[in-house]
């Protein structure tokens, strides 16, 4: 018998238990102002939220961000975001990204409960770009927000090979004397641009 079968046989020796699988559909906290809640949570976890009236204002808002202004190399995955010193050609070698100062990338949706943004590997050539850039700027449609994590998973599907992650704030650690320090191995800062009008207040 191989190890797999030995393990499964050993598991089957457990006493019979009947525990049903509960359903969490529709479960979880909801907020009157999800976008405001998201902004509060993002601030709490060390990120910065910036509201942007519409697509045309993105460039202007970016210029207001110090790390963006002073960056030597900016990589943009957001259509329309282009800078004199940004490299338009896609980078073939992920190792080259080590020199990257700022990545401006699209986020799919936000979670009000915990200040997280879902980003997907589908939109980038190299997965590592989300953490290897010194500073990360995510651009999200302000309408794309869910109240809690249960709703977030209702939205997501994982049929194919893919990589995706929730990002909630800049990289941080409390591993030295429980003191919170931002800028551990990943991006040192996180800005989130919330583009367009906020979602309508849900009917009560």
């Amino acid at each position: 018998m191989n190890s797999k079968n030995k393990i499964l046989a050993s598991i089957r020796k457990q006493p019979v238990r009947e525990i049903s699988l509960p359903d969490s559909t529709g479960f979880g906290i909801r907020y009157e102002d999800p976008l405001g809640q998201f902004e509060n949570m993002l601030e709490q976890v060390g990120g910065v939220a910036l509201r942007v009236a519409d697509q045309t204002q993105i460039a202007k808002t970016l210029e207001s961000i110090e790390v963006y202004r002073s960056a030597k190399w900016v990589l943009s995955g957001v259509p329309g975001v282009q800078r004199d010193n940004s490299d338009a050609a896609p980078v073939d070698d992920p190792y080259a990204l080590e020199q990257l100062d700022v990545a401006v990338l699209a986020g799919e949706f936000m979670v009000a409960e915990n200040g997280a943004i879902w980003v997907s590997g589908e939109h980038v050539k190299h997965r590592v770009v989300y953490v290897i850039a010194e500073h990360l700027i995510l651009v999200v449609d302000a309408q794309q927000i869910v109240h809690n994590l249960h709703e977030a998973y209702d939205r997501l599907s994982f049929e194919q090979v893919q990589y995706g992650l929730f990002i909630s704030g800049p990289s941080k650690t409390a591993d030295i004397a429980a003191t919170l320090v931002t800028g551990a191995q990943g991006a040192r800062s996180l800005h989130v641009l919330l583009v367009g009008p906020p979602p309508a207040t849900p009917e009560r």
Binding site: A116, V161, Q162, L165
Partner: peptide, 17 residues
């Protein structure tokens, strides 16, 4: 664990890169 609402990175791996 730490009183955070979620960890900074929650990475989902479905298949190899």
């Amino acid at each position: 664990a730490t009183g955070q609402p979620i960890t900074v990175y929650t990475s989902h791996f479905h298949g190899p890169a």
